[in-house]
Amino acid sequence: MNIFRLAGDVSHLVAIIILFLKIWKSKSCAGISGKSQVLFALVFTSRYLDLFTVFISAYNTIMKLVFLVLSYATVYLIYMRFRGSYDSENDSFRVEFLLVPVTGLAFLENYAFTPLEILWTFSIFLEAVAIMPQLFMITKTGEAESITTHYLFFLGLYRALYLANWVWRYHTEGFFDQIAVVSGVVQTIFYCDFFYLYVTRVLRGSGKMSLP
């Protein structure tokens, strides 16, 4: 554990809690892509199956459980409890365009051709693109509430901090996970455009982020 990794995990947790509390307190999921949230629940489910096979540390186990519970709770709020506020009209990204290639790639490129390894690889690849329905929705409606942009900022920051963590681990431990690093770079690139808009419009302006 190094400072980048810890900051990355905290940033990830903050992002998920911001989104959950936003929906919970406002009793509305307007502007939130339910599809992205289902994909993230799928990411955690397929990655954390190792909860049943290996024990790393109490920190590791607790964080995995928290991510799983919060991701399913968020999906529940969007599709069940506050489904009246769900904007299915604008959440029209075709997730099969992500799921099919990601599944195919996980079978082709993995560390071992075993169910757990393929599912782990699937989760890493899927996470890299899971935010696309949300970004698509913002592009389509042309705006995002500032609290939604704070969520996206911390979610993007998390993987960027993991990149720093991997650079650190490479130099101190000689650790290099090609699948995670390449996907992590791709994932972070997807947020770059958003980071720019976040700094120039949300932080310097106020209220909603509207696209030109």
Binding site: S57, N60, K64, F175, D177, A180
Partner: peptide
Amino acid sequence: VIGRTRHDEL
């Protein structure tokens, strides 16, 4: 070991 090192990340 590849798996063990990798699974310590979230």
